[in-house]
């Protein structure tokens, strides 16, 4: 069979993903994690003096939750069930760091654990910082903050 024809056939015969089921699960799981985030945010709005500090504390708390659920071997099961519902929230970002560190723990603390913490999270941080810097610069200029 001609390779081109075969590639076409592979596409035609690929198992059909159950988009409705997967998106529903992602919606429910992502929604629940966001709702928990809202409760945490509410709490910090009460005790923190500024909204910015409440945001910072909320992100950190959610990251803590994600890290602990990873260590207990729960977060990968959430991901298997809810897909993007587990991957897209900031808890999934924490999961990517802790899971990498746990996997490479056996290769040593310096050559393994600590150097592999950023294997998956690294690009997210770099893009957040670089894009955030550029957009922050433009926005500050637009607001006339450098005058």
């Amino acid at each position: 069979m001609d390779p081109k024809r075969y590639r076409q056939l592979v596409q035609e015969r690929a198992p059909k993903p159950n988009v409705v089921r997967d998106a529903t699960r992602a919606f429910l799981l992502g929604g629940c994690i966001a709702l928990i985030g809202q409760f945490v945010f509410d709490y910090f709005r009460l005790i923190e003096p500024t909204r910015g500090e409440a945001v910072a504390a909320t992100l950190a708390t959610m990251i803590f939750f994600g890290a602990v659920l990873t260590a207990f071997g729960v977060y990968d099961k959430l991901g298997e069930w809810g897909g993007a519902g587990a991957a897209i929230p900031i808890t999934g970002f924490a999961n990517s760091m802790v899971s990498s560190a746990m996997d490479f723990r056996r290769d040593g603390i310096i050559t393994g654990l600590t150097s592999k913490l950023f294997v998956i999270a690294g690009p997210v941080i770099v893009f957040a910082v670089v894009v955030g810097f550029i957009v922050g610069l433009l926005r500050s200029a637009f607001l006339g903050l450098f005058a």
Partner: peptide, 12 residues
């Protein structure tokens, strides 16, 4: 991927 990473396996 790392074992504990939240990966959703595909049917294939």
């Amino acid at each position: 991927y790392p074992i504990e990473l939240n990966v959703q396996r595909k049917a294939t």
